[in-house]
């Protein structure tokens, strides 16, 4: 299972800092996602695409988390020579995070 099977994400930027939301399709998965999608797991998964610490904010009222991270200096909106100056594709990287199986195997109900 990957994060994309149970959650959706959007990337945004402010200079060298980017944020990626992680929003549970089913709010019932939220507590489990908080357990498994830790800042450390995100840090490891993103690898060299980010640098330094990952900061996580929780929004239980909407079943969401917000991950804030820094891109390497060479990847800032201003400095990058890459195509994705704003880091908009980084949410797609995060959604490929492999997840352990859920404790209960509820069918994925996508809340829209």
């Amino acid at each position: 299972m990957r994060l994309a099977d149970v959650a959706h994400s959007r990337a945004g930027d402010k200079g060298t800092i980017i944020n990626c939301s992680v929003i549970a399709f089913d709010p019932a998965d939220y507590d489990w996602l908080v357990e498994v999608v830790t800042p450390e797991a995100v840090r490891a998964h993103m690898g060299p695409l980010i640098q330094g610490e990952v900061v996580r904010y929780l929004l239980p009222a909407i079943g969401a988390m917000n991950f804030v991270m820094s891109r390497p200096p060479g990847d800032s909106v201003t400095r990058t020579l890459g195509l994705d100056a704003h880091g908009k594709s980084l949410s797609s990287v995060l959604l490929d995070l492999p997840l352990p199986d859920r404790p209960d195997r509820r069918a994925v109900e996508r809340v829209r």
Partner: peptide, 17 residues
């Protein structure tokens, strides 16, 4: 939808508080 609204609420946000 709820999902489109949630994504936009957290767009380009750091500390949501």
């Amino acid at each position: 939808t709820l999902a489109t609204c949630k994504e936009q609420l957290l767009y380009e946000i750091h500390d949501p508080a």
